[in-house]
């Protein structure tokens, strides 16, 4: 099993990348910074599964917490509103 690289509370940036093919990283989250809410476990890589490959080795999957006002600069709700989204480790880089 691939050990998770990030810990709860780590600041991360979701890669601002646009590879061709299937992936599970919503467009609106790309390039944003947030913090690790939890490591969900390791799961087969959906970018491989989509093409009928086995997706192994399983990749660490995290939940990343993002402030709404960072995602949407004109966000109409409260300043403390948040969004949590599942992101695979290879889509994350440390945000120092």
């Amino acid at each position: 099993m691939t050990d998770p690289m990030f810990r709860v509370g780590d600041k991360v940036r979701i890669r601002d990348a646009y590879p061709i093919g299937h992936c599970r990283t919503p467009f609106y989250t790309r390039g944003l910074t947030g913090e690790i809410e939890r490591h969900c476990g390791n799961f087969a890589n959906p970018e491989e599964l989509a093409y009928r490959r086995d997706g192994q080795p399983a990749m660490p999957l995290y939940r990343v917490r993002l402030p709404m006002r960072q995602i949407w600069p004109d966000y109409a709700g409260a300043a403390h509103d948040t969004l949590e989204v599942e992101i695979f480790e290879h889509w994350l880089e440390p945000d120092d």
Binding site: R24, C40, G41, F43, L61, M68, G77, A78, L83, E86
Partner: peptide, 28 residues
């Protein structure tokens, strides 16, 4: 705009309550 959508369902929340949207984007 989760607060607006929630209001359409009749759910109006005070500003003091944090609204947390969960995007079920992968395996959970």
């Amino acid at each position: 705009n989760p607060r607006k959508v929630l209001a359409e369902f009749g759910t109006i929340l005070p500003e003091t309550t944090e609204v947390r949207v969960h995007d079920s984007s992968a395996d959970m």
